[in-house]
């Protein structure tokens, strides 16, 4: 864990704290009185705000989770050097592609 990885993980954690709270609060608010796919898409499709909200969330999760898993793989699995970095990039890019697909699917007008 270098200073750069440490800072990236802390900064993304700071970003995620309000995003998680916002995510949970909207979930609880939005399901009052039932919920349908059309209702969700009606709010999110074409919304720059929700695209930015979940786009930032996905980017932060990908970075934060990938660095964390790299550390776990290094300390518990003995992964070192390029192998650990490769795992980090694969996990990070994988999470980003999955998340970005989902964000695009619900916000693209």
């Amino acid at each position: 864990m270098t200073l750069r990885l440490y800072m990236l993980q802390r900064i993304t954690a700071l970003l995620m704290a309000p995003l998680v709270i916002g995510h949970l609060a909207v979930m609880i608010y939005a399901i009052q009185g039932g919920l349908s796919a059309a209702e969700i898409l009606g709010r999110t499709q074409g919304s720059v705000l929700w695209f930015a909200f979940y786009g930032t969330f996905v980017a932060a999760v990908s970075i934060h989770g990938a660095i964390g898993l790299r550390t776990i793989a290094a300390e518990w699995g003995g992964l070192r050097g390029i192998a650990a970095d490769a795992l980090m990039w694969i996990v990070g890019l994988g999470l980003f592609v999955l998340g970005a697909q989902a964000v695009w699917a619900v916000t693209y007008p």
């Binding site: 864990m1 270098t2 200073l3 990885l5 440490y6 550390t71």
Partner: peptide, 9 residues
């Protein structure tokens, strides 16, 4: 203390 084995571990 900022490298691979540094304080951030």
């Amino acid at each position: 203390v900022s490298g691979n084995g540094g304080c951030h571990n």
